[in-house]
Design a protein around this nucleic acid. Sequence first.
DNA 1: CTGTTAGCGCGTTCAC
DNA 2: GTGAACGCGCTAACAG
Lengths: 336, 336
Amino acid sequence: MNKQVSSKDVAKEANVSRATVSYVLNNVDRVKIKPETRQKVLQAAKKLGYHPNAIARAMKTGQSMSIGVLSNWHIAHQRFTEVLKGVKDVLGRHAYSITLCSYKSNEQEHPEYYQYYLEKKIDGVILISARETINEDAVAVIRKKKMPVVLADFHYNNPTVPCIDIDYHHGGYTAAKYLIEKGHRHFIYLGPKSLALQERQRISGVKKAFEDVGLNPEELVQISIEEPNKQDDEDIIDVLKNKGNKSAIIISNYIIAFNTLYLANKMGIKVPEELAVISLGGSDFAKYSYPRLSTSDLPLYEMGCRSAQALLDLINNNGDSVHMSLPCRLNIRETC
Amino acid sequence: MNKQVSSKDVAKEANVSRATVSYVLNNVDRVKIKPETRQKVLQAAKKLGYHPNAIARAMKTGQSMSIGVLSNWHIAHQRFTEVLKGVKDVLGRHAYSITLCSYKSNEQEHPEYYQYYLEKKIDGVILISARETINEDAVAVIRKKKMPVVLADFHYNNPTVPCIDIDYHHGGYTAAKYLIEKGHRHFIYLGPKSLALQERQRISGVKKAFEDVGLNPEELVQISIEEPNKQDDEDIIDVLKNKGNKSAIIISNYIIAFNTLYLANKMGIKVPEELAVISLGGSDFAKYSYPRLSTSDLPLYEMGCRSAQALLDLINNNGDSVHMSLPCRLNIRETC
DNA sequence: CTGTTAGCGCGTTCAC
DNA sequence: GTGAACGCGCTAACAG
């Protein structure tokens, strides 16, 4: 391999000790260095193309300047990558790099990220998930070793673990409120069968909007279909056929929403004239559906930024463990 | 912090030397160890929860077991993340982790990944891009330090640099051939204004299909519009209005294709009856457009897998520098 | 045949 | 401003 220029080489070139090189290059102001000596070192470093060896530094300092990010979403899923983007933008500004981890466990039954932590490759972890709460194994592992960790898109009622969440209640509320203001009075709520916490929060938000204007929350017709990825078209067709006096449909995610739009097109149901549609959860492709899908967008990028910041604070012992719930943003296009 | 269990602790617990611990735990068969001693060490390690410090190991071995991945696509773009997924799947099987890099340069004008190579000792880099060829600065940097690198989705005619590419010619050819077999004879090719290499290859593939059945390649009507993200609807509307006797349209990417479908819906043009549509470049959302978009899918995941394998081979000096072009896969849905 | 001693690599930091 | 020791896993050389 190429021999790496080390501080020893720089020291020799500048006729000083390695210690001096370190002090100069790290701007340690606790130690006074004569300006000319400083110059000599700087020049020697530049001349030789010196780069500190981050591995050696990590060994000494115990900080690898690297953060693990993992999720139970698959790595190419937008739900994950949008958050990742936020994380990267913030971490990048603080000279931290990102190591991708997975939930996969090895023979010793440690999740991969935990393995990384134990082997000192990473200074902390951001867990990105959704649907339901974090599993208790992961929590146990985290607490046992006091691994710095931030939960993103999790509901976890432990004040000692920082947790950046999405305000799904707010998302449901604003979407419903918008439709109500548009004059709608009879709604369908279409979501997946499994009533995860985020689903329940969205529905409570919708009902809150009803109450605010004196509508009876009990009148919200809730319809559940299979999980987005194995949904049965027949179920949605039934919903559309039997919509009765309902003039608006609130759909809990964009996959179901796109499919609903597709089927409405096929059945000749005019959106939004005959049926207004809104999706609680956006997508880059909302602007390409026909008609363009109105959505309540999840603050994924921001969640990533906040999570990264919270983790940095945690690592540096700045402030208390953060718990926050980020609001959604209405993005009205053509379907309502 | 928690004090890390080191091999010293294990050695003490098992009443052996640190060297013995290392030999046992790494299964060094050059050195014979008595089975009972081996057991003692193994048990001590387990009891103390010992994990080797990867940083110290990296320092000694010069291998960080970490690969840098970077792209000029933004980090949440499907075009990037699908490849990343393939890379991760393969690298994970070989105990390598992934460090995310960006093209961003620091004060010393080194691209971040190069910085990582010099400082964090990543063992190699996978450059993921597209559109045009790699810029020469990046190449110069790579060659100067003999940094192991694989180019994914690049055209680069240097046999010493491994390069995993997509056969865009093949993508255009198979799509056109399919349409021809369906009876179409008059085509429009709709693509972005900038005639990047991949565009030219696609078009040549389409023309090849024409030639194969005795159609005159010159009859292909090529229409260019603005870049996908700032496209002008008017341009596409013009294309649709003036399609004349053309019965099929080949579109170079899904963004333009979705928008074309949207506008066709709006204009009351029936797809595929009045106009067959196919996109050279797929998307997860193709199955949600109305009608469901037929695509020629890019082998992104496979490209990631192959790139990772090529890089591992390069690092381990296995075989020659790879150059390959991966075929596209037709995914016929409803638009043709 | 089995296992130990010793020193390396490299940036940091204490004591002088 | 310097010398020296440290952190920790690896391995060549050596001892019992």
